[in-house]
Amino acid sequence: MVKITIDGIEIEVAAGTTILDAARQINPETAPPAMCFHSKLEGSGGKCRTCLVKVTKTSPSNPRPMPKLAPSCRTFVEDGMEVENNRSEEVLEARKGVVELLLINHPLDCPICDQAGECDLQNLAFEHGAETTDYQEERRRFPAKAIGDLIQLQMNRCILCFRCVYVADQLTDGRHHGVLGRGDSSEIGTYIEAAIDNDFSGNMIDVCPVGALTDRTFRFKSRVWFSKPMAAHRTCEKCCGNAVLWLKGNEILRVSGRRNDVGEVTEFICNTCRFDTKSLHLWEVEGPARISRDSVISQNHTPS
């Protein structure tokens, strides 16, 4: 066990924990935001730079601060480390810059986007973003590409977090899509036009922090805040069967995975549960799913 101080709060964590994890153990709400890191996906993180923190003291034997802001999802704790997160002006300023960079190519089409209301980038920009930008160039645009009947790809909205690539690698047998091209022209695609259809491909929708990958069967059906999220389970041979049903009356508009306090999907569900069992009698409803009080979805919703 090692002792680490984040924003003046001391906590003891196991050696080999990242700063982000330690901060989340103190309080998930004050922990640094993360767009690309996903605790259930091995190797994720280190790409988006939203989780930057200031390490003011590396350890008692090495009391110098780290020369630059460190990505907390990839920096491991050391005994006696001191970290500044929300207290440091420098960190907040850097976060503002990162949000601006993420939004450079992200279209402001939230009124159309199905992810609006549960979008990580929307929340991040709301909490940490500046109101204006100096950027004046055109946003990059991609022609619409079909990747099957179940998943809708909107490449314009992608922030290249690589989460969906890790899902395909670690959950499904055989990955058919990836990031093509380099630099400004990198994009998610299947290269040779192919439909992504294997049993766990639907989880790409859940891990996508923005509206780049959305549920095609839910496309434009309803805004997320008009449906009620209910925790439910069913017996499934392929997956855990624990899911969240988004109800409008007695109709299931869509099914998604369960999320933890920081909005990460904890239990991945199969495509049968997600797309093919949209009938209430096939599910055991447990009760209202937990939704953050700050979320717009919590309007008219009583969390358990």
């Binding site: 939230c110 009124p111 159309i112 609006a116 434009f220 805004r223 805040w225 008009f226 717009v296 309007q299």
Partner: peptide, 9 residues
């Protein structure tokens, strides 16, 4: 109108 639902909420 794009039916974003903000007026309704």
């Amino acid at each position: 109108c794009t039916a974003c639902g903000l007026c309704a909420i």
